[in-house]
Amino acid sequence: MNSNNNTIDKSTLRKTFFRSIPMEHSWNYERMMNLGYCFAMIPALKKIYGGNKDELSKSLTRHLEFYNTTPYVVTLPLCISIAMEENRAKDIDKFDTESINMVKTALMGPIAGIGDSFYWGTLRVLATGIGTSLATQGNILGPILFLLIFNIPNFGIRYWLTFFGYRLGTSVLQKIESSGIMEKITYAASVIGLSVAGAMTAEMVNVNIGGRIGKGDDATTFQDILNGIIPGLLPLGLTFLVIYLLKKKMKPLPLLIIMMFVCIVLAYFKILVLPK
């Protein structure tokens, strides 16, 4: 329906592909791939919100939120995000902006699950097997084949997913629009997005207290006792403490520095320990 006034062209998508390459360069503990994701979104966002500096700035902030997935397939969520942003710009007031990050979040778990096992588990093992069998004999083809076996799928699939993701995003959004089930889809995306966010919080936020009661084999650690009551109480409590502090207008940077400092001090006194 609206395909005539699409602002995103092939060259913008190609730029997105090239900008997705350093996705993990700025990987950080706090929001992981967020900066790489935002960096890759820039050409598209400039095109979509070019004249509107306020909306451009808001969209940049939106895509600086936490993100983490397999880097080789990141162009899929990237270009779905682009399709959604483009759709939003057509009717800013009507579009549910929350749904953009919701869909992004819902996608990161499943994509990482499939992507990690394919790239790290299968492709890398295959490339290493063939590469090392030649290289142990001193054959220069070993390292060359190693790079080719891994990187032809790496860049090939990454490139293909750029266009596939965008087409998927636009076609699904158009169908949703014409059938008037936007509200329903937004709700479903929220259910999946928040479940995935919860699952990833449980997986990635780790707090383990040290100390034990009793001696020798009978000793029970405090952490075991806590896990016996409700597992994950500390990471959950910590996450909600941070939510509270952010709502009290505390800035993330001081929070980050305090956390690093406190962790080092608590590690010295062995109050916090690494998980076993």
Partner: peptide
């Protein structure tokens, strides 16, 4: 302990990222 502390921080700091994401969605 400085290195151990930073390793522990690697499990604590993502709480900020998730908290911001949760705040938004």
């Amino acid at each position: 302990f400085v290195i151990t502390g930073m390793d522990i921080a690697a499990g604590v700091i993502p709480a900020i990222g998730f908290a911001m994401l949760i705040n938004m969605i």
